[in-house]
């Protein structure tokens, strides 16, 4: 594995959430979770269904309001930012139940995901600039969707839509990418392609990545660190091997608690 070495502990985190709490109608989805992601990391976020992984993503990208805690990104407190401001700062994400613009073409989806920082009124009143279109085309090549360039995004297969989302997440040249189940429901051939792309992003392009993933093999393969959530609480956080061997983790993850009572 030519994985980047985990960053030295004395570096300051790229993204840091402290005491993040969120509940829906009295049900605590997150109960005071701390996370820190360092530049260059690939962090796996795992846990059983309903453990709060996607909610954590929604909180980090500021889609969901927090009930408690603060979030810092690049040293800036983004707790009171709008989602679009966070995106413009260089955090992008994909979604568990894919959110491509289904009635727009693949290339339009890409152009619409460009870095909008500094975009103002008169400048917006013209078609996408050549450099943006070029970038979109390059990235379509990267996610192997060149042939589908002018197809409607809704007509792509599920796996291709996942790839398109990854391409869209890259359009803004983010520093941090949050991938929400990037391989679920995708056929095995494409899983390999996606795994390959994620690795390239980290090693060659130096992107920091957090991924929610149910495929433990993939997590072990890609990630330098793993965070385990269960019932909205952080169960474990550390080196991949150590965490995956932790009996408490496998208990939570494979639900033995339920069997033993």
């Amino acid at each position: 594995m030519n994985r980047r070495p985990p960053c030295a502990a004395n570096a300051s985190p790229l993204l840091e959430g402290r005491g993040i709490g969120k509940s829906f109608g009295g049900l605590a989805a997150l109960a005071g979770v701390d996370v820190a992601v360092y530049p260059g990391d690939v962090v796996g976020l795992i846990g059983p269904n309903g453990s709060g992984k996607t909610t954590l993503f929604n909180c980090l990208t500021r889609l969901d309001g927090l009930d408690a805690g603060r979030i810092h990104f690049k040293g800036v407190d983004i707790t009171d930012h709008q989602p679009f401001q966070v995106a413009r700062m260089g955090m992008s994400r994909t979604f568990q139940n894919i959110r491509v613009y289904r009635k727009l073409t693949v290339i339009e989806n890409m152009l619409l995901s460009r870095q909008w920082r500094g975009a103002r009124w008169p400048g917006l009143l013209r078609p996408s600039r050549p450099e943006v279109t070029e970038r979109a085309d390059d990235l379509l090549e990267f996610v192997t969707l060149v042939e589908q360039r002018v197809d409607l995004a809704g007509s792509l297969s599920w796996g291709q839509q996942r790839l398109l989302e990854i391409g869209m997440a890259l359009m803004s040249d983010p520093d941090l990418i949050l991938l929400d189940e990037a391989t679920s429901g995708v056929n095995p051939l494409l899983v390999d392609a996606i795994r390959d792309r994620i690795m390239t992003l980290n090693t060659t392009h130096g992107k920091t990545i957090v991924l929610i993933e149910h495929n433990i093999e993939l997590v072990a393969d890609l990630c330098s660190r793993v965070v385990v959530l269960d019932h909205g609480e952080k169960l474990a956080d550390g080196e991949v091997g150590a965490v995956l061997d932790d009996p408490a983790v496998s208990e939570a993850y494979f639900g033995r608690r339920g069997l033993n009572g």
């Binding site: 990208t61 889609l63 709008q82 989602p83 679009f84 995106a87 413009r88 992008s92 994400r93 979604f95 959110r99 491509v100 613009y101 289904r102 009635k103 727009l104 339009e108 152009l111 619409l112 995901s113 460009r114 870095q115 909008w116 920082r117 975009a119 917006l124 009143l125 013209r126 078609p127 996408s128 869209m168 803004s172």
Partner: peptide, 22 residues
Amino acid sequence: TEFGLMMLGIREDEPGAEMRGV
């Protein structure tokens, strides 16, 4: 234009557009 594209993006998926920097 890009502005028109943003409008269509809002129509198709507003939270998605917002989280992609629109």
